[in-house]
Simulated assay, not measured.
Amino acid sequence: MPAAFELTNVSVERSGKALLDDVTWTVAEGERWVVLGPNGAGKTTLLQVIGATMHPTRGTVRILGEKLGEVVVSELRTRIGHTSTKVADRIPPAESVQDAVLSAAHAVSGRWQEEYDEEDLARAQQMMGEWGVSALAGRTFGTLSEGERKRVLIARALMTDPELLLLDEPGAGLDLGAREDLLASLEVLAHADDSPVLVMVSHHVEEIPVGFTHVLLMRDGKVVAQGPLDTTLTADNLGTTFGQRIQLDREGGRFAARRAAYGRRANRSPETGETA
């Protein structure tokens, strides 16, 4: 399959600190990736590079057939959908939900003097319907719950029918019900044949939707492991990534992780609680 993007020996340095350190990563069309790692691992920086909002200090980046540094990035960004807290912060609190989604057609945050046609409006209504926020169309963005905001942001990111969709911690701040609702919707998106390439950043294996195919594990700006989810997401790789012994379980396509028991706890009988 053709590559959606390729990073070759990419490093990003700011104020003498390496945010990314010699990252090489290729994602093909049709793949759905989750990027896992602790705080400070470089995950958000990685998304900024892939989203063409940050240039690397060293290395080569090719996104959707274009080489970063040799392309008009404003045009490239229209082909990439991106959800993050930074995107949310740029949307005026008084903006209506419909306008928050609609304005993505002109890559702006906040309606001003730009014009939209019936096709734009129909697309916005379609996206709001697919992400379950049609009933919120007249509400202002600033009055939404965290779960509602996350759905509006994804509807906005999909407004321009992007070839690449970047999701930066879409489950952060959600309660259990809102998280499960969002994951169910992302599962549908992951299985759809016409979906863009998906890259989702998370801290938690519990937030990996069924249908995602690959994983990239990061620590201190470096790649710990990468590859197919079924063979790469292991307790050993998670332990190296998060600096702890990890117990990893999987049921019904969903993952769960916790710190592995030590010493006497590791020898306790699960039935009686007594030490063997």
Rank of each mutant, 00 (worst) to 15 (best):
T60K: 11
E75H: 15
P92R: 09
Q125W: 03
T272C: 07
G227L: 03
S134P: 00
A41W: 10
E187W: 07
E119F: 00
R62I: 13
T53N: 14
N39S: 12
F5P: 09
T53Q: 14
Q98H: 04
T275M: 12
R32I: 06
A256T: 13
V35G: 05
L20K: 07
K67M: 00
V197P: 05
P38W: 01
K222I: 04
L76R: 11
R14D: 06
D161G: 05
W33S: 12
H203M: 02
A225E: 10
D89Q: 14
E206H: 11
P270K: 11
A157L: 11
G171I: 03
I246V: 04
E118Q: 11
L47G: 02
E6M: 12
V224M: 01
R79Q: 15
G51Q: 05
F5C: 10
A100S: 06
D249A: 15
V108Q: 12
T143Q: 13
H214F: 13
A28G: 14
T85E: 14
V71S: 05
E206V: 01
S195I: 00
R123V: 10
R139L: 13
V224P: 05
V101W: 04
E271Q: 02
E146C: 12
G129A: 10
V34N: 04
L217R: 07
P2S: 15
S202Q: 04
R179E: 11
D230T: 12
W112G: 02
E207G: 02
V188P: 00
R219P: 02
L165C: 09
E130R: 15
L136Y: 09
T232M: 03
V35M: 02
A94N: 10
R268W: 00
T83K: 11
R90Q: 10
G132Y: 06
T234D: 08
K150D: 00
R254A: 08
G273Y: 03
T83R: 09
E206F: 09
S134E: 08
R258G: 10
K43I: 07
E118W: 04
R219T: 06
P162V: 01
G16K: 07
T78L: 15
A261N: 08
G147K: 08
L64Q: 00
D181C: 00
D249M: 15
G40T: 06
Q247M: 12
L176W: 06
H203P: 03
N39G: 09
